[in-house]
Amino acid sequence: MNPPEHPWRLDSQALARLLQAFSADPATAAELYEKNRLRLCRFFEWQGLAHAEELADRCLDVLARKLAEDQSFSEPGSYLLGIARRIRLEALDEQSRMTVAHPAPPIQIRRSAEDPLNCLERCLDALKPSDRELLLGYYTGDQGRRIENRKRLAASLGLQMNTLRNRALRLRVKVEQCIQRCLQDEEKS
């Protein structure tokens, strides 16, 4: 009788090999890993898939497994897209088949009315004043006004639009994470 087959799991050796595939430099490899993971997360989110982070990790696990099996890839990013597309199909199929069968008693989700605004103010206060101004300046106004605002902001800060956009994106992610933590903390308390 054959021994039971164990599912493959990412171990430290496989992770090291995965990072090495992104770059020989550990810091660059870590950055590329995070970048690719974010890309995968958004790829799945943009398809309306619920568990985007889990699906992104599944893609990275598949790549790690292939590398552990001595396959090599000149462009891990392109290979990841192929994996992501396959997993997207499976996940969309799974999601469409989901049904509900369990009645349930309540979970309290009421909150005080001012939580998100309070959290936003708190998280904005935690930024450097210059970062706060950049973030609010970048994301103020409707679509037409935004374009003008951003041009003016880039000119006043002496930045290229790409650089301004990158800074605004990083700041927004930081504030989003801060607000999420803040709301969770308030919920606990």
Binding site: I109, R111, E187
Partner: peptide, 28 residues
């Protein structure tokens, strides 16, 4: 703020869901 408060509540619910997901595959 009324709209925000409820949206925020659901973020919390979904975070709880996310955390719980590791333990069960039941869907509600």
């Amino acid at each position: 703020q009324q709209a925000l408060s409820v949206a925020a509540a659901l973020v919390v619910v979904s975070v709880a869901a996310w955390l719980y997901k590791a333990k069960t595959s039941m869907l509600v």
